[in-house]
Design a protein around this nucleic acid. Structure first.
Length: 226
DNA sequence: GCGACAG
DNA sequence: ATCTTGTCGC
């Protein structure tokens, strides 16, 4: 699959932050995905040594949520984990996996924040710009923002606020479990993000696209093998 | 100075 | 992210 070469990756943390501030101005906060036929899930696992990583992209048929394509890329991790700069650590591997993909998904669900980020440019937004595909930020925990605890039942929603801005939503995807932090990645409105996320849940906390990508990335795989 | 902090 | 078994709760 094609990518948009926006910038080099060998940046210092300070340069990376400046870049995010510039990229944020290009992010589109509205949009709808018309009758999506496919949806992708993306996740990255990192070895304990923090040296090697594996990016996984799964593409599912939107109506049946069955896998129709996937790509894996393993490589060296060269950037440290710094809150707010996750894309500079994981995106390079994801880009390589994207090149190996055969089916171009109509929308992408990324494990991480979209605009619910200090500079409004989390990894889901960053990828949306580079892949030029609508993206949804689907994080398992909070980076920034304040929100009330949503209803305990699946479907409970609460706005995620930062100052006077609504940067996302806290969504309960399954009864009684810890909610997910959903935010706009690129080219899609928050209401639509929430609708798609809930539509992709099948009894687990994680929506099928990211759940499958998480498994494909190999995270905690040894636990299942045994 | 202190605490928070996606994965 | 990763280290890791049993265990508390719906």
């Amino acid at each position: 699959m094609e990518i948009v070469p926006l910038h080099p990756w060998n940046l210092t943390p300070a340069q990376a932050r400046e870049l995010q501030t510039r990229l944020a101005t290009r992010i589109q906060l509205t949009g709808t995905v018309r009758n999506p036929s496919s949806i992708a899930g993306i996740d990255v696992s990192v070895s304990r040594s923090s040296r090697k990583g594996r990016a996984a992209i799964t593409v599912l048929d939107y109506s049946s949520l069955k896998l129709i394509d996937n790509a894996i890329y393993e490589g060296e991790i060269s950037f440290p984990y710094i809150p707010g700069l996750l894309s500079f650590r994981e995106a390079p591997l994801i880009i390589e996996a994207w090149k190996k993909l055969n089916v171009r998904p109509d929308v992408i669900m990324m494990d991480g924040q979209g605009i619910a980020h200090p500079r409004r440019c989390g990894i889901a937004s960053h990828l949306g710009l580079m892949l030029d595909v609508p993206t949804i930020g689907c994080a398992k925990s909070r980076l920034i923002g304040i929100a009330a605890d949503p209803a305990k039942k699946a479907g409970g929603i609460t706005p995620l606020v930062d100052g006077d801005e609504i940067i996302g939503a806290v969504v309960r995807t399954k009864d009684g479990v810890k909610p997910l932090y959903i935010s706009i990645g690129h080219k899609i409105a928050i209401e639509h993000c929430i609708e798609i996320v809930l539509n992709c849940c099948r009894g687990y906390r994680l929506p099928e696209p990211v759940r499958m990508a998480h498994m494909a990335a190999g995270a905690t795989a040894l636990h299942y093998i045994k």
